[in-house]
């Protein structure tokens, strides 16, 4: 038969102020404006939304699965970049115990 398949637009939805836009799915639409109008009905029939983005799917470049393991690998010695790499609180507590240090009472 052969027909016209409308292109795909990926849809990103922001539920409330302060939230990030989150990928919720995609619609087939002839152009961006229609994509937005059609996405509204497919993804905001229920629930909240304060902002919607549509992005042509073909504009998305993605990392390759085969390379993901190496590409996103994080070596052990980079622990210094993680907050959990620092055990400060515990060291302070131990010092306080050893020196009998306590906090002056708040007035």
């Amino acid at each position: 038969m052969g027909d016209t398949q409308w292109p795909v637009y990926e849809v990103f939805l922001q539920e409330k102020r302060g939230d990030p836009h989150v990928h919720v799915g995609a619609v087939h639409a002839p152009d961006p404006e229609m994509a937005l109008l059609l996405a509204k009905e497919q993804f905001v029939r229920r629930g909240r939304c304060i902002s919607l983005w549509v992005v042509p799917a073909e504009a998305i470049y993605a990392s390759r699965a085969e390379e993901a393991e190496e590409l996103f690998a994080s070596a052990l010695e980079k622990e210094y970049r993680e907050p959990r790499g620092f055990r400060v609180t515990e060291r302070v507590r131990r010092w306080m115990e050893r020196h009998g240090q306590s906090l002056p009472e708040a007035e």
Binding site: L38, K40, E41
Partner: peptide, 10 residues
């Protein structure tokens, strides 16, 4: 088309 069906139902 499916998307138009959904919008018209709303």
């Amino acid at each position: 088309i499916l998307e138009a069906d959904i919008a018209m139902a709303s």
